[in-house]
C-alpha cells in the first residue's frame, strides 16, 4: 500500500500511489490512512490522480476514513480519474465529499502530468443526463 503524506499548514495531502483501490487492497488502504490522519490535521486531501480503478470496497474504505476522522475535520478528494469519478457520481457520494479538479496546494512535481488529465475528465455529468 503506497501512500505519501505531506503536511502543508492545516492540510495533510495524501497521495495514493496505487493504480487500484479494490477489494484486494481496501482494508490495507483504510488502515494506512487511519495511521496517516492520526497526526490531527484539520483538513485531509486525498489525491487520487494515479488511481484508475476504484470499486465499492474502495468507496467504502474512503467513506470509513471520512467517518474515522470525525465531524470536526474534513476529508476532501482531488484529481479523480473518470472511472473513479463515475463511482462517486453513481452512488451520489460526490454530494458528500468536496472534490477538487486537481491537487490543491503546492503542486508536487511528480504530479504535474496527472493533474491536467484529471482536470479534463472531471465530473462530466453527461452520463447522467
Amino acid at each position: 500500500m503506497e501512500l505519501a503524506a505531506e503536511r502543508h499548514g492545516d492540510m495533510l495531502l495524501v497521495r495514493v500511489a496505487e493504480p487500484r483501490i479494490d477489494a484486494a487492497i481496501a482494508i490495507q488502504f483504510k488502515e494506512a490512512m487511519r495511521e496517516l490522519v492520526a497526526d490531527g490535521a484539520p483538513r485531509v486531501v486525498l489525491d487520487l490522480a494515479p488511481v484508475g480503478f476504484l470499486d465499492s470496497s474502495g468507496l467504502g474504505a474512503v467513506v470509513a476514513v471520512r467517518k474515522s476522522i470525525g465531524p470536526d475535520r474534513r476529508l476532501e478528494l482531488a484529481a479523480l480519474t473518470p472511472a473513479v469519478a463515475r463511482v462517486f457520481r453513481l452512488t451520489r457520494m460526490d454530494s458528500i465529499f468536496t472534490i477538487h479538479p486537481a491537487t490543491p496546494g503546492p503542486e508536487p512535481t511528480a504530479n504535474r502530468q496527472a493533474a491536467p488529465a484529471a482536470e479534463a475528465s472531471l465530473p462530466d455529468g453527461a452520463d447522467e443526463a
Binding site: S56, L59, A61, A64
Partner: peptide, 24 residues
Amino acid sequence: RPQDIDAAADLPEGGFGWFLIRRL
C-alpha cells in the same frame, strides 16, 4: 437499492456493489 446517504453522520460503508451492478 440506492444507499441512503442523507444522514452524513452515519454514511454507509458497504452495500454499493449490487447497486452498481444493477445500475450498469
